[in-house]
């Protein structure tokens, strides 16, 4: 999967968990926090992405991530290992 495809997958996950966010306007350099996503929903979004990609990444690794680009990067890196 390309990074662009993973970004789309993250946006799908955002739509599913927080339907009030219009993901058409979401930019990759934004953070989930910037979008007003609460802490529980942020974790739910990340876990949904992992499940979709069939990856098992320790959640602490997402703690270092600063924005959606970081999430995409981490998912991409693990999915290509």
């Amino acid at each position: 999967m390309t990074k662009e495809q993973i970004f789309e997958l993250v946006k799908n996950s955002i739509r599913e968990m927080v339907p009030e966010i219009n993901t058409d306007n979401v930019r990759i350099e934004q953070s989930l926090r910037d979008l007003g996503v609460n802490s529980i929903d942020r974790m739910d979004i990340v876990i949904k992405c992992m499940e979709d990609l069939n990856l098992k990444i320790p959640l602490v690794e997402f703690g270092k991530v600063k924005n959606i680009a970081g999430i995409v990067e981490l998912l991409y890196e693990k999915s290509t290992q």
Binding site: I40, M43, D44, I47, M50, E51
Partner: peptide
């Protein structure tokens, strides 16, 4: 099968 994918919402 996959405890990792348990939704964190479950804790609430």
């Amino acid at each position: 099968t996959s405890p990792e994918y348990l939704s964190p919402s479950y804790a609430l």
